[in-house]
Amino acid sequence: MKRFILTIFFSIVAVIPIFAGQINVYTALEDDQYPIYLESFKKLYPDIKVNIIRDSTGIITAKLIAEKSNPQADVVWGVSATSLLVLDQYKLLAPYSPKGIDRVLPQFKDKGKAAKWVGIDAYMNAFIVNLPEINKRGLPIPLSLEDLTKPIYKGLITMPNPASSGTGFMFVNGILQYMGEKKGWEYLDKLHENIAQYTHSGSKPAKLAAQGEYAIGISFGYRGLKEKSKGAPVEVVFPKEGSGWDLEANALVNKKQIKPEAKIFLDWAISDDVMPEYFKNFPIISIKHNFSIPEGYVKEPVKQLMKNDFVWAASNRERILKEWQNRYDSKSEPKK
């Protein structure tokens, strides 16, 4: 009888793939970015199987928190620094200074003796504007945050939901820190009047703008430039007031069994094997370099960044999101 049950049991279990020397890497890097980054790792460490779990920043963050009693991830790679600080509050990060951390500029890494997180690059908000759609309506290209709230753009703008999207959160966070909370929410109220849709991901507003489905998308620079390079009739605008931004950073997940492969991965993730690849997509990387700025970005990208206090952002994240949902998520009617 036992054998009979075991046979059935194992025939079901047999479906599960089993690999040796594997790590689970949670990332918010884009679907069209990380496979290219990973190429060099696969070449260098063919024996280590990397399982990538990719989702929007908010979701990866929430997933890690939800799994806190039984962390599935070994490594967090390319997730916003704000989120990592949130994760640290849950004691989910293990301190580890990867090889070569000395090269990383101090403002791009954890101040602790053994760093809990290490930045790789910075990314920033941008508007992606569909030119034919704007021209057809005879509208000017919005150049500033202030422009976006003008009634002429009513129903033409999409932006990511900050609860699910890191891009969305860094936009809201940027506004609140730049304008102060009171004025910031007033601004978002006005912007809300013009928003046609809040999307799940940060990329989607850029793609909707590229397709002309909605003329203006609040997204991030890389996505807009990528769409433009693919031939979409769009202009990528970095707003006059500055851009909300965040770091993409790595961390080791605090769990019972920390695998040596996880550390190897983290060492590699800030090495010269991959840094130039990050730079191809983002103008600001966490080490000193003399690469030339990728095409389409502002000339001095660091100046484009708004003021951003990561610690403030992390400790207020939950409150901001709740406030945001109560203000805007209950919107029932689709905007005309």
């Binding site: 929430a62 699910s164 046609a196 799940h200 029932s332 689709p334």
Partner: peptide
Amino acid sequence: GGTYNVIAVDIYKQVVGQQNI
């Protein structure tokens, strides 16, 4: 659905989007 929320999508948002189990 756009911004027209329905309960089925709410579950997804609560669980996947916010991991509010």
